[in-house]
Design a protein around this nucleic acid. Structure first.
Lengths: 138, 138
DNA sequence: TATTGTTATACTCTATAACTATA
DNA sequence: TATAGTTATAGAGTATAACAATA
């Protein structure tokens, strides 16, 4: 078995930043009466029109869980179920214009807030951070 | 209003790392039949014995939400309500020995998994990462 | 009267299992 | 028979509002 590689302090810092980012996401989502899972769903639907089961797989949810999620978003007019061409059993999920608009607003607000987190980091340090994070993300 | 400071790429990377860490936390918590909020609660209780309302404030929850959370943890023997000395209305919350033990196990597993994320980052880069994250965290 | 915590109620999110319709 | 999706049911987590006990 391998010995510990990183110091606990670095890992703590990473978790702190992680919680800060999730807090930003959660707060902005809540301000628009959205949950984190709904924001994640919108992120996936931004450039895809998946089947229910595909969307469930992307989100790591059971198909039955997704039914309710899509129900609620559809009731708010943010997404819509579109029957599949070849398979009458299947439904593809698509963002509506209203959904896209709301999604863009949320995204902009999130980026602005996250950006503020980097206000005290110089450009060269941001560059180094990017390089190191790329290593973390493989 | 201030112009954008950081590149969207860096922010995306930070969110990706953030999601990876939350996934680690969620997976390990679930393996022990715990939720993220319960793990967070344990983290707070590790070195405190707060009142219900203090614990609710730490977690950003309403007191009524905390009642159920503590109920479920207490039913599993992980925490216990201890009457306050001076104020008969108040309850302090304390981890049991079983709760502490489980909490330590979860913590060790989480650190081990998070550590693996830094396997491809050299020691000097880890040091730089720590310095930059300290700036992000103010 | 104000505060501490619980209870009642409602809604979202999640899973498992049973079901319907189609392939 | 197998697959795509929904529905029924149950439980966790959350909030608001009403409540009980104590300060």
């Amino acid at each position: 078995m391998s010995r510990t590689n990183a110091s606990p302090e670095i890992i703590d810092q990473l978790f702190q930043v992680s919680f800060a980012l999730h807090a930003i996401l959660g707060t902005i989502a809540a301000a628009h009466e959205l949950s984190l899972i709904q924001v994640r769903m919108f992120g996936i639907l931004r450039d895809r029109q998946p089947l229910m089961q595909e969307l469930a797989a992307f989100l790591g949810l059971e198909k039955s869980s997704l039914s309710g999620l899509v129900d609620r978003a559809e009731a708010r007019g943010l997404v819509e179920r579109v029957p599949h061409d070849q398979d009458a059993r299947a439904m593809t999920i698509r963002m509506t214009a209203a959904g896209k608009k709301l999604s863009r607003v949320v995204e902009q607000e999130v980026y602005a807030k996250a950006d503020a987190l980097l206000a005290h980091v110089t450009k060269p340090d941001q560059h180094r951070l990017g390089e190191i994070l790329a290593l973390v993300l493989r």
